[in-house]
Amino acid sequence: MKIILNIWRQQNATSAGRMVRYEVPNANEHMSFLEMLDVLNEELTRKGEDPVTFEHDCREGICGCCGFMIDGVPHGPQRGTTVCQLHMRHFHDGDELWLEPFRAKAFPVIKDLMVDRSAFDRIIASGGFISVNTGSAPDGNALPVIKKCSDMAMDAAACIGCGACVASCPNASASLFVSAKISHLGQLPQGQAERDRRASRMVLKMTDEGFGYCTNTGECEAVCPKGIKIENIARMHRDYIKASATFREETSGGGAG
């Protein structure tokens, strides 16, 4: 099958980008979308042109590396699927597609379809963890966890941090990503001690990284390859409101005397 691609080409973060048209005449319905791009890149390399840069690694939908816009939808038309698992059988011979990087101020383009999502790491670093040094843990069964809570924490923890939620959001908000982590840890008994601090810091960090706000459109939930629910965003708002009212950041370390 033949596929026509309009791909965003941008040399680096500071240069201007533009759409460039390519044809892949020998695509095959069994290929994954990324394998189809591999074929294009092999061809470009043979012709001495610069291959298209796109991020990818595990190619089995779990590492969260891949992701770009296909016709204005992150990861393309197949729901619950990352672009590495999207197969060409969902397209037709002669289809013309538009490929763009995820766009957000907090996700600057590095090259072509590759963006810098390190803002996500910085948000996690601001509080998306449970403070427990190696070796200081009690027995795994010392603290029973209600199965339902554990299951719901797992639902939220399934997030792969790909950034599709930000890309699809009309406001480039990272609310789904941030709330998934707040929900994951906040629903477990282990996560209670730092629950206020976590919500408070992560929300402020998300704001300072330049992400937008949530207008509850549900766009993120619809494109999330792991089915993370916007119910988590409500939980984040709840936790943040409570934390804002009651949480006190410690002022000084005290010190052992």
Partner: peptide, 29 residues
């Protein structure tokens, strides 16, 4: 302020953007 933030958060618009879930009401707020 949120409207300004929205524009700041995505300074470069998409060439092509689809809406999958956003209702007409939400889009026109």
């Amino acid at each position: 302020q949120l409207w300004r933030l929205k524009n700041e958060a995505r300074p470069q618009a998409y060439v092509k953007k689809a809406h999958i879930a956003t209702s007409y009401a939400a889009r026109t707020m």
